[in-house]
Design a protein around this nucleic acid. Structure first.
Length: 213
DNA sequence: TACCAGGAGAAAA
DNA sequence: TTTTCTCATGGT
């Protein structure tokens, strides 16, 4: 489906335009997991407000969050929207992580095992699971989100409505299983899709977009 | 005021 | 099996 050289060419254009992104924007791996749930269908700025509340209340750890009542957790994450749904989902993830022996216990398991297990947690779909695997567990899994679909379809590489697994497997098959590359690539895609066109001759957005027609 | 933003699951068709 | 609906806040 994808040619390796085309995917790498696009990566290098993005990297040249924006440089290293050093993702995910979080202070700990547990915070990555929390952010992955909170950002579901939600602008990141709103997630930051919720993360700030959790940090202020010292609830950004597995034990502290697992010990919170639903209502209290929902109150803290309110700015991220869907707070009742997300509070339930966060508690589900906490239970899964605790049952896995915490982050260190989960790290001892294979990527496939972790992925299948994560997808069984109610509230964790493929995008959330893969974000957690890539950014919290540093596994070579490519995240397919709305930004990935938008960019690749604009470049004419996909139709845009392919099933999640079809795209993920196609991209992973075309590239070497390198978590650092997948991390940087996805972060660059998000950066590029959020970048506003500066309208100037050296606009970074236009540098990447040029000659795609 | 209306629309949008890094999904996922349940219900309905 | 596929489509539609629901969950909700903050920024523009």
């Amino acid at each position: 489906m994808f040619q390796r050289c085309i995917l790498l060419g696009l990566y290098h254009r993005l990297y040249t335009a924006y440089g290293p992104q050093s993702w995910w924007p979080a202070r700990s791996d547990f915070e990555v997991i929390v952010g992955a749930v909170l950002t579901q269908n939600t602008a990141w700025t709103n997630v930051e407000y919720a993360i700030r509340n959790l940090r202020r209340e010292r609830r950004l750890s597995l034990r502290a969050m697992d010990g919170l009542a639903h209502g209290e957790l929902a109150r803290l994450i309110r700015p991220a929207g869907y707070f009742n749904v997300k509070a339930r989902r966060l508690k589900n993830v906490c239970k899964w992580l605790a049952a896995s022996g915490g982050l260190s216990g989960a790290r001892r398991r294979s990527t496939n095992e972790l992925r299948e297990d994560l997808l069984r947690v109610n509230g964790v779909g493929p995008e959330t699971a893969d974000s957690i695997l890539l950014y919290a567990f540093r596994r070579p899994v490519f995240v397919i989100d709305i930004y990935t679909r938008r960019l690749l379809s604009r470049f004419g590489l996909i139709a845009g409505d392919e099933p999640y697994e079809t795209l993920r497997i196609a991209i992973e098959s075309a590239l070497a299983p390198d978590h650092s590359l997948f991390n940087e690539y996805h972060a660059l895609i998000v950066r590029h899709e959020k970048e506003k066109c500066g309208g100037t001759r050296d606009c970074r957005h236009c540098q990447v977009e040029q000659n795609i027609e």
